[in-house]
């Protein structure tokens, strides 16, 4: 036990004082020259990293908002496009049916006109024929008169002429 007390477990006041002096001096030097700048720099870096992460988070949220906006715009645009196409189709349909209707009406008008013209031409032809018949009859009458026909023959001729006209008509 004496060995321990004098050796291993001995607390030498001189060594104690040296420890305190050494440690205090070391602390003062390191405090001013090492720990202050190191801790400052590490804190500044930690602060920077923190703010960078915060910024990134903010930017992410912003980007998400913009993405949603764009999506909405795209949706709107495609809906608009669809409505425009539908409108165009409807317009085209209307125009088509309009054209067909118009063409039909025109054709009808044309045929009406043609019919009228035919009628007119027929009337004209008939009146011309009638005039011709009158001339012919007159000529025939003159011939008959000239030949001195008997009344029977004359009657026969007139009837003949009239029936002729009837068939022409």
């Amino acid at each position: 036990m004496d060995v321990l007390k004098e050796g291993l477990l001995k607390v030498d006041p001189g060594l104690l004082l040296w420890t305190i002096i050494t440690f205090a001096v070391l602390f003062l030097i390191l405090w001013k020259a090492a720990w202050k700048p190191i801790v400052d720099a590490l804190d500044a870096r930690a602060e920077k990293v923190r703010s960078d992460i915060e910024n990134a988070e903010m930017m992410r949220i912003e980007a998400e908002k913009q993405l949603a906006q764009h999506k909405e715009m795209m949706d709107k645009a495609s809906a608009e496009v669809a409505s425009i196409i539908a409108e165009g189709k409807a317009d085209a349909e209307r125009v088509r049916s309009g054209i067909i209707e118009k063409a039909g009406a025109e054709a009808k008008e044309l045929s009406e006109k043609v019919k009228k013209e035919i009628e007119l031409a027929k009337d004209k032809a008939l009146s011309e024929i009638t005039a011709e018949v009158v001339n012919l009859s007159t000529e025939i009458a003159a011939k008959i008169i000239a030949k001195n026909l008997n009344p029977d023959d004359q009657k026969k001729l007139v009837e003949e002429a009239i029936s002729k006209i009837g068939t022409v008509q």
Binding site: L15, W18, T19, T22, A33
Partner: peptide
């Protein structure tokens, strides 16, 4: 206050601290 082995060892440790951390800082 006679300087002993242990005191010298402490000084070496303190010197190591200075030699390492002053340039690091």
């Amino acid at each position: 206050m006679r300087i002993t082995r242990w005191v010298v060892m402490m000084w070496i440790a303190a010197l190591l601290c200075l030699v390492i951390f002053l340039p690091i800082a």
